[in-house]
């Protein structure tokens, strides 16, 4: 009797979660597909996708989402790698710096966008500084549709600034699994150390790097409010379009179509990384 109950215990402990996840994750995903592929009378349709694709913003949204991905992810990884390697030398005061580097972890992309807005706006701090240094006479319009590349750049900077912290913690956690002998505390910048970093540490860190890449790529498809804060709708992105179709155009069908597209990209990106970086799920820590 006792043993019967005992063997049911783990299931009953997990049951609430599984129920919840089913109700609020699994079923909604099915419904999202229904919304995206069903017409008003319940028959199968591609109308929502056609409408989505016909929209003038669609091409731009795709383009900018991928451009952001291409620019932001490598920048994050490089910055985060620098931070992680620095912290990992355990120099005096490294915990203080770790705390500072980690602050953006808890900052939303909306707040990050606003913080950088204060810097990049017309009469913002960057223009102020450049003026005081005598470089600029009049403010430069970073956030104007006339300077699309600059505007795009501000988004790249803001989002990299925010999410670098996430990548750093992943890499740092990975670094801690590598035996300390590989590191020399004193001269991080010596030629030997550079070589060691390139040829020993990075390969050992590959599972963590891959993890970071997957996560950041997945979330890059969802980039949204940082773009809104800095560029409004001048630079459309996929998640933002989904939001717009739902909130502004009151069209859940097209909004769901975008959501399905984001999901497809997410799955494809994960598949791509596993396929071409040739690391098993277990190696990547998915066990």
């Amino acid at each position: 009797m006792r043993s019967k109950l005992e063997s049911l215990l783990p299931y009953s402990l997990l049951a609430p979660t599984l129920l919840f996840v089913t109700l609020l994750i699994v079923i909604p995903i099915f419904q999202a597909f229904l919304l995206a592929f069903q017409s008003a009378d319940g028959s199968f349709t591609l109308a929502h996708f056609q409408k989505m694709a016909a929209d003038t913003s669609f091409g731009d949204a795709l383009k900018f989402t991928f451009l952001l991905l291409i620019f932001i992810v490598p920048l994050q990884v490089v910055l985060a790698l620098m931070m992680a390697l620095l912290i990992h030398t355990r120099f005096k005061g490294h915990t203080f710096f770790l705390y500072i580097y980690a602050i953006p972890l808890a900052i939303s992309d909306l707040a990050a966008g606003i913080a950088w807005l204060a810097i990049f706006t017309e009469r913002g701090y960057l223009n102020s500084i450049l003026n005081q240094l005598g470089i600029l006479e009049k403010p430069f319009l970073f956030l104007s549709y006339q300077n699309l590349p600059a505007m795009f750049g501000t988004i790249v900077i803001a989002e990299s600034w925010r999410a670098t912290a996430i990548v750093m913690t992943i890499l740092l956690a990975g670094l801690q699994l590598i035996p300390r002998d590989y590191f020399e505390a004193a001269d991080v910048f010596g030629a030997n150390t550079l070589k060691r970093t390139l040829f020993v540490v990075l390969p050992l860190l590959r599972p963590s790097l891959q993890n970071a890449l997957i996560i950041r790529t997945i979330f890059a498809f969802q980039t949204f409010s940082v773009v809104f804060a800095l560029a409004g709708r001048v630079i459309p992105v996929m998640a933002g379009e989904s939001y717009n179709w739902y909130v502004t155009n009151r069209n859940p069908g097209v909004a769901a179509a975008y959501a399905v597209l984001i999901l497809i990209f997410t799955v494809a990106a994960t598949w791509f990384y596993f396929k071409f970086l040739k690391t098993s799920a277990a190696e990547a820590g998915y066990d």
Binding site: I29, A32, P252, L263
Partner: peptide, 14 residues
Amino acid sequence: MFPTAILAIPLAVV
């Protein structure tokens, strides 16, 4: 991994 959009939009409808 699921994007928030794919949860939020159908749930809003429900």
